[in-house]
Structures are given as structure tokens and as C-alpha cells.
Amino acid sequence: MRVPILRQGPYLIASIQAAVTDEDLLHLGQEVVERVGQYRSRGVILDVTVLDVMDSFAARTLRDLARAVRLRGAETVIVGIQPEVAFSMVRLGLSLEGVGTALDLEDGLALLDQHVRRRGKGGR
């Protein structure tokens, strides 16, 4: 099942479903990076609230997605990582270095706003 990508103002929001496959994730990566340019988006939110497991493939794919998005001039925030998921990721040595994280969608949007404001001030 493809992950739907929603547009919300200057941001893109993708809610990843529980039944997501590796292929869906790869597809999502390409799609998001493409749309960031298409819609001139300033930020991307990946919502993983319903995931009860995050393996190394998923972690790497999401990290690569975030890096590619940054090269296109936008920020990525992953929201909704559950306590158990966070714990097992750390124990497996999976990190999302360089990617923003937030508790939920609301916090994620606030974090993106902060980024955008800082960039605006920096006169990028």
C-alpha cells in the first residue's frame, strides 16, 4: 500500500501505515523528495505513530530520505516514535542522526515552524 502524502501549507505530511513494506518506503522516499521541489515545501513530517517496530532498513531509508530532503532545501521531522520502538532502536544501535524528531504531529509542526523562522532570519 502506497503511503499517501498530504500537503499542509508549506509542509508535506506522510503517515506511515503499520502494514508498510520496504518497497513502499523506498517509493515514499522518491516521492517526497520529488514533491518537495514541486510544491516548494519547507518541511516534511513523517508520522510513524502506528509503527510498533522499526528495523534497520526502515531507519536507514528514513534517514536517507531526510538527507535528500535537506539537499533540496527542506527539513524533515519524524514524529510519533513509541517508547518501545525508541528503546529497541537504541538497543539495536539504530540512530536517526541528523533527523529531527518530535513527540507528535503538533510538536513536529512547531519544530518545523521554528526551523523556518530561523532560516528566514539567517537570510538564506
Binding site: 517508547p83 520502538v85 538497543r91 524528531t101 518530535a102 513527540l103
Partner: peptide, 12 residues
């Protein structure tokens, strides 16, 4: 360190 990393994944 692990605790700090896990908390960060949850945005804290």
C-alpha cells in the same frame, strides 16, 4: 547515552 538517544527519538 542510550537513554538520551531513546528520549531524543521521541523528541525530548
Amino acid at each position: 547515552i542510550q537513554t538520551v538517544q531513546a528520549a531524543r527519538l521521541m523528541g525530548a
